[in-house]
Design a binder for these strands. Sequence first.
DNA 1: TTTACCGTTTAACCTAACCTTAACAAAAAT
DNA 2: ATTTTTGTTAAGGTTAGGTTAAACGGTAAA
Lengths: 237, 237
Amino acid sequence: METEKKKILLVEDDPNFGIVLKDYLAMNDFDVVLAKNGMEGFEKFKKDNFDVCILDVMMPYKDGFTLAKEIREKNENVPIIFLTAKTMKEDVLKGYKAGADDYLNKPFDSEVLLMKLKAILQRKATGSLADSKQFEFQIGHFHLNSKLRFLKFNDEEPIKLSPKENELLRLLALHENDLMPRELALTKIWRDDNYFTSRSMDVYIAKLRKYLKRDDSVEILNIHGEGFRLVVKAENQ
Amino acid sequence: METEKKKILLVEDDPNFGIVLKDYLAMNDFDVVLAKNGMEGFEKFKKDNFDVCILDVMMPYKDGFTLAKEIREKNENVPIIFLTAKTMKEDVLKGYKAGADDYLNKPFDSEVLLMKLKAILQRKATGSLADSKQFEFQIGHFHLNSKLRFLKFNDEEPIKLSPKENELLRLLALHENDLMPRELALTKIWRDDNYFTSRSMDVYIAKLRKYLKRDDSVEILNIHGEGFRLVVKAENQ
DNA sequence: TTTACCGTTTAACCTAACCTTAACAAAAAT
DNA sequence: ATTTTTGTTAAGGTTAGGTTAAACGGTAAA
């Protein structure tokens, strides 16, 4: 039985918004610690154990992204949610979002935040621990947005991905340059490991290869009998 | 109760335009202080408390970005709106980094400026957690007034929206450029998530698409099995 | 009361999206 | 050489979504 309140570190420089959000989360049975800038946030993070961190990206002195990196050095697993301005251009945010467990555009719907918190804590509780949901990736010249299910190559029209394409590419990206075992994808995405699901997966590998063809520095290699490897060759730029 | 007029610092080097804009804002119940260059702007900023700053970017001696940085050093929270030439793109990004809350391309629609001012002041007041409080949206060239239930395209006759059309578009606008999950709309608007309400929602999506067709830069995309996405493409002309 | 109107739901039909399975070719392992 | 695994394309079936029109139900005008 888990009767303890979940602890949230909230780092937000706007004092009005910070307090409103803190109260709202407290009302919904979270234990919230509010820090009003990146430095204070990091101090508070070191002194306690948090279940989730919610970081504003745009803060003076130390932005949310920098803070996230420091937090990651201390703790690889704690889920991080970024709050970003809606007016920021996507390419500006690309870098920020990569490495996030989730993000929300400000202003946002408080119910959506609660949903996300619930989902993240649920995921952690059910033991799929290291699998906290990172869903944006830079893959060579591609940008994968796994939440909106699209793959963008430079400035081209985004390619829409089907759920299976998306999950598979995401799993490969999580193991970038490393082995992504067949069995892992089959159990995680297909929920069953048999001849047919295995063949189905091969079909999806072929589809992904077709998409990724436009960037020579990216390819999916097979390791016979083991699985696949998403290889991103280093560029000179 | 907030009966005080909101105080605006307007920094604009073109004297004609500056005076016209000042008068227009004054007419709309703002208390406007006009400065005609960056240096004068900073002096006036130090001597008073402003709710918003509107800064022209291109000014002699001290440009708007530089001024913004100085203002930020004094006050981390005051909202800043930039007025920029339409052709600038790099500079816009630079502006965001300096901590802009919004920007407008010159020449601009004075009503749009009012809208942005209202939105920003609203956000500050409510801490932007105002999912139930935001009723006006700029959607590309459209303006949605969700309280009065109309959608206006440029200067055309406003389109009257039915309650369902209105709520659905509002929910999409709240999630602009992001996923608006089917389930969210169904539970929030239809209060029930079943086959029929889902089909009903699709009908309303079709209606909204028809309205939005007159602006090429706005569209409602479907994310199969997940929900919809109101996409507003950035203008480049 | 009847009629007209409006917003909404339901129905119907069609297309697009998605996933699996089959089939055959190529590569790797035995 | 034979078997197993993988690469790839295409056909098939299922479900979700796009769209239009008719049916429904409530309310206001006649």
